[in-house]
Nucleic acid binder design. Structure first.
Length: 495
RNA sequence: GGGCCGUUAGCUCAAUUGGCAGAGCAGUGGACUCUUAAUCCAUUGGUUGAAGGUUCGAUUCCUUCACGGCCCA
């Protein structure tokens, strides 16, 4: 960091700001624009210059000065606003005395307001012939270089405002994120789901197998945990009679960071009574297919050099089937027998604890050998009961649950199941989790007595699902890292 | 937590075997009334991420640390 040089550039701009202060109000807020760049291009982009000159269109535009090309007594400038860019054309003789001279002293990055009439240049670019122009906000810090823009990843994440000024790809990514969330809301609202908000601070962190962040409430003199999932609260609402509910909000998990993990991330969770996990697979398939069509215009999503077809029916297979399919050397006996399965896991280099049952061992083998290779949209079903403490047992095979996870590009995007609404079974599962917690598993669940009490009032047969919004946005925006789809991703403090 | 890679001017990047730290853009001064990364002339700007070591001499080699990236757990 060469503070001296930065100071020289900033100091120069600060002198200009001081001159503005001496000349009057340096930070005026009385300019009202009546046009934005994108709409001007949409409305007048097709018109010939003769048409524009014949019936002059007067506009007021405002935005950030992104380019300045001075050629003696005439200049071009690019103004960037929330919708795009529009070119300004300034002539010394077309402006009040002194204004052109002042303009020449303004810097890239300054916020400008201008008024003039629309026309097209010799090369046919729609522009504003400026008649009045003034500076609305002085920018004190130089922007990155105009051609290469801002490339440094760290700066893009730490100073997202600069990234957004400079990189259209980033601007589009977060617009797409907003459209995805809006699409989901409309999709669920149209189907009579009720959007709700449940506690982010919970006395008993539940609904997932993960380590929570803890905090402390002074007045109540009690520990609280940031939620790892809203699940148990949403199901209380189903007990209460809201038979279709959803929440799109942040979860917090006290785990490591990676290109796929941020300590706080956004989940959609939704619950619907009187349907089962197969209905939710159908819904998920339709939701994603429709979303791809409506937001990208195609049912094929291109991401990181791969192509994913959401148009054709999604593949469905059980955990067990998928292990056998991706491990030709394994027989059914190898993964159905606890001793053999442990040996297989050992050969794969998976650390297997004594406390693991067969289901847990199978899931470890699945995660190691299958998950990352599930490229095409795929539902994996029949997760072992041992690793699914909130899911309903399968009627034919109580070793597994009526549960699925959904994968694309080797990444888990969704997790859903028929809900366990047998209060006595749930209580037993909680007790099992507490035993694992007592045995040292920091991720195991607590016993939530109030949740059991809620189930004892009777929860209708229900299915529920969670969809990771960040990963979904990564897929739809061709982003390699979760940090590219979080406006302000978690980083270590700057040194 | 482990392995590998990176950090040089405001930004994007160079720097031969260890031998005077450079360019473009931005900035500054000047020319220029249709530019598009405008052009032309001149010019300012550096604690090479930090600390230590080896050396006559370190951006370059070694150690530790910080931050980031990729892979693994």
């Amino acid at each position: 960091m060469s503070d001296q040089e930065e100071h020289a550039l900033i100091a120069r701009r600060r002198e200009k700001l001081n001159a503005l202060r001496e000349a009057g109000r340096a930070f005026p807020n009385d300019f009202r624009r009546d046009a934005i760049a994108g709409e001007l291009h949409a409305e007048y982009g097709d018109r010939d210059n003769e048409v524009l000159e014949a019936s002059p269109v007067r506009v007021k535009v405002a935005g950030r000065l992104m380019a300045k090309r001075v050629m003696g007594k005439a200049s071009f400038a690019q103004l960037q606003d929330m919708s795009g860019r529009i070119q300004l054309f300034l002539q010394r003789d077309g402006l009040e005395d002194g204004v052109y001279q002042a303009f020449k002293g303004w810097d890239i990055g300054d916020i400008i307001g201008a008024e003039g009439v629309m026309f097209k240049t010799k090369t046919g670019e729609l522009s504003v012939r400026v008649e009045t122009i003034r500076i609305l906000t002085k920018s004190l810090r130089p922007l990155p270089e105009k051609f290469h823009g801002l490339a440094d990843q760290e700066t893009r994440y730490r100073q997202r405002y600069v990234d957004l000024i400079m990189n259209e790809v980033s601007r589009n990514t977060f617009r797409m994120r907003s459209r995805i969330v809006q699409f989901i809301r409309e999709y669920l609202n149209d189907r009579d789901f009720l959007e709700v908000e449940t506690p982010m601070m919970q006395a008993i962190p539940g609904g997932a197998v993960a380590r929570p962040f803890s905090t402390y409430h002074n007045a109540l003199d009690m520990d609280l945990f940031l939620r790892i999932a809203p699940e148990l609260y949403l199901k209380r609402l189903v007990v209460g009679g809201y038979e279709k509910v959803y929440e799109i909000n942040r979860n917090f998990r006290n785990e490591g960071l990676s290109t796929r993990h941020n300590p706080e991330f956004t989940m959609l969770e939704f619950y619907q009574a009187y349907v089962d996990y197969r209905d939710l697979m159908d819904l998920t398939e339709d939701l994603l297919r429709t979303m791809a069509e409506q937001l990208t215009g195609s049912t094929t999503i291109e991401c990181q050099g791969a192509s994913y077809d959401f148009g054709k029916p999604f593949r469905r297979m059980t955990v067990r089937e998928s292990i056998l399919a991706f491990n030709p050397g394994l027989s059914a006996a190898d993964i159905d027998d606890p001793g053999k399965a442990r040996a297989v896991a050992g050969q794969l280099g998976i650390p297997v604890k004594d406390s693991y049952g067969l289901g847990k061992v199978q899931i470890e083998i699945f995660e190691k050998t299958v998950e990352g290779r599930l490229a095409d949209p795929t539902f994996i079903t029949a997760y072992p009961t041992e690793v699914s403490p909130l899911a309903r047992r399968n009627d034919d095979d109580p070793f597994v649950t009526d549960r699925f996870e959904f994968f694309v590009g080797g990444r888990e995007l969704a997790n859903g199941f028929s809900e366990l609404n047998d209060a006595e079974d749930q209580a037993e599962r909680f007790r099992q989790q507490v035993a694992e917690k007592d045995a040292g598993d920091l991720e195991a669940m607590h016993y939530d007595a109030d949740y059991i009490r809620a189930l004892e009032h009777g929860m209708p047969p229900t299915a529920g699902e969670g969809i990771g919004i960040d990963r979904l946005v990564m897929l739809f925006t061709d982003s390699p890292s979760i940090r590219d789809v979080l406006l302000f991703p978690h980083l270590r403090p700057e040194s």
